[in-house]
Deep mutational scan, measured.
Amino acid sequence: TYYTVKSGDTLNKIAAQYGVSVANLRSWSGISGDLIFVGQKLIVKKG
């Protein structure tokens, strides 16, 4: 599943919304830090 980052989103908010960890969200999407951008597509795998 892809999630497109919206204004005001954080990795914590997105992870909580999908019931996954921030570490997994980073790993799946190839992100090393906490910086995400509006319009960026993140990969989300539901448990």
Rank of each mutant, 00 (worst) to 15 (best):
1 T>I: 15
1 T>R: 12
1 T>G: 10
3 Y>E: 01
3 Y>S: 00
4 T>Q: 08
4 T>G: 03
4 T>P: 02
4 T>E: 10
5 V>E: 01
5 V>P: 01
5 V>L: 03
5 V>G: 02
5 V>F: 04
6 K>S: 07
6 K>P: 01
6 K>L: 09
6 K>G: 07
7 S>A: 15
7 S>M: 14
8 G>L: 04
9 D>F: 02
9 D>I: 01
9 D>T: 01
9 D>Q: 01
9 D>W: 02
10 T>R: 03
10 T>L: 04
11 L>I: 09
11 L>H: 02
12 N>L: 15
12 N>H: 14
12 N>K: 14
12 N>C: 15
14 I>Q: 00
14 I>L: 07
15 A>P: 00
16 A>P: 01
16 A>H: 11
16 A>E: 14
16 A>G: 09
17 Q>S: 10
17 Q>R: 13
17 Q>D: 11
18 Y>T: 07
18 Y>P: 00
18 Y>M: 10
18 Y>G: 02
19 G>Q: 10
19 G>S: 09
19 G>N: 11
20 V>I: 15
20 V>T: 09
21 S>I: 05
21 S>F: 04
21 S>W: 04
21 S>T: 14
22 V>Q: 05
22 V>H: 03
22 V>T: 08
23 A>Q: 12
23 A>F: 07
23 A>K: 10
23 A>H: 11
24 N>D: 15
24 N>E: 15
24 N>S: 11
24 N>A: 12
25 L>W: 02
25 L>K: 00
26 R>G: 04
26 R>S: 07
26 R>L: 12
27 S>Y: 12
27 S>V: 12
28 W>D: 05
29 S>I: 05
29 S>H: 04
29 S>Q: 06
29 S>T: 08
29 S>D: 02
29 S>V: 05
30 G>C: 11
30 G>S: 09
32 S>M: 11
32 S>A: 11
33 G>N: 10
33 G>Y: 06
34 D>H: 09
34 D>E: 10
35 L>E: 15
35 L>W: 11
35 L>I: 14
36 I>S: 02
36 I>W: 03
37 F>P: 03
37 F>T: 11
37 F>N: 08
38 V>L: 08
38 V>A: 10
38 V>S: 07
38 V>E: 11
39 G>W: 05
39 G>E: 03
40 Q>F: 06
40 Q>C: 06
40 Q>R: 03
40 Q>V: 05
41 K>D: 06
41 K>Q: 14
42 L>W: 02
42 L>V: 08
42 L>A: 01
43 I>A: 08
43 I>R: 10
43 I>S: 07
44 V>Q: 01
44 V>G: 02
44 V>K: 02
45 K>W: 13
45 K>A: 13
45 K>L: 12
46 K>D: 12
47 G>R: 11
47 G>P: 15
47 G>T: 13
47 G>D: 14
